[in-house]
Design a protein around this nucleic acid. Structure first.
Lengths: 155, 155
DNA sequence: TTATGGTTTGATAAACAGTCTCATTATCTA
DNA sequence: TAGATAATGAGACTGTTTATCAAACCATAA
């Protein structure tokens, strides 16, 4: 499941406990749907579209009969609370991933769509410098490098 | 950071001539609609949604009676040919700008939506290094810093 | 200049992602 | 366990983008 670069920084049990605490704190309810969504995101190595997540959950928990609206609602809630983060793909929608991993940026192959994650300290530091220079109070950023991955270059 | 970074690097006449050459090269036709779209993009200081561009053109050239489909078709064509570039805003669509300016990244205020452009040599250089490290053939990148702009911080 | 053939167009239908509504169901707390 | 209230699924709805197609337009060659 985990190749070294995508190693989880926290265990699922811890994540789930934190999630429950958050819900309690906000007077929200811990539902079966919310649990399965979190779990599916956790055990997926991929960046998932809401639609893909919906399919995965329908396959694994058909009796749950989870609706797509709940997927969207829950993803938004998770994102607001910094549990997941999303990547925009223009008209092609968004892809979500658990944000409990270390922060990272993305390198996207325009041939096969593969997404490689990376962290670069120089870039992280420089972004703060730039925001500061403009009197901008940075609270987030996203960076994507587009190109052709190693595999696709050889095809 | 030089404030000259938003200055046009080429004249409209040159841009138009290049555009005509491109069309000819690809056996595409130079139409009134395509000309006005390019012109409107050139003289706009803003990042425009297809809808906003459509409105601008209807206001300035009502007799052209340009359809929204043509705006979309032309923007796609211009983007494929690296004449414009777009910024994605998830479900809120895309915003386009002429890409004939110097390359730059974007700082986006999540309060008022204002977009500030910047270029940073350290980041530009670092991106190439990162792509190289992964055996990735980079052909493009985009970086956005999200936060609250100076103005909105004081409101 | 005009005829010709292929391209582009506007209108509109359709596809699509994402949001909203609301009656029903589930969860939490006492 | 009951009652209050939040969450859900279904599906209607929105707004953006794409596809379709007959009519209009443009470039070329005579």
């Amino acid at each position: 499941m985990d190749s070294s670069s995508t190693e989880r920084t926290i265990e699922y049990d811890k994540l789930l406990a934190d999630f429950k605490a958050l819900l309690k704190d906000k007077a929200l309810k811990f539902t079966n749907q919310r649990e399965k969504i979190l779990e599916t995101l956790y055990y997926s190595q991929e960046h998932l579209t809401p639609e893909a997540l919906h399919l995965l959950i329908k396959e694994k928990y058909p009796e749950l009969n989870a609706g797509i609206a709940t997927i969207y609602r829950t993803l938004s809630m998770l994102e607001e609370n910094d549990i997941v983060s999303s990547l925009s793909f223009g008209a092609q929608g968004k892809k979500y991933e658990l944000g409990a991993k270390d922060h990272h940026d993305h390198m996207i192959c325009t041939e096969c769509g593969e997404i490689t994650e990376f962290v670069d300290d120089v870039i992280e530091a420089q972004q703060h410098k730039i925001a500061e220079k403009f009197g901008f109070k940075m609270h987030d950023h996203s960076m994507q490098i587009y190109g052709i991955c190693k595999k696709c270059q050889n095809n």
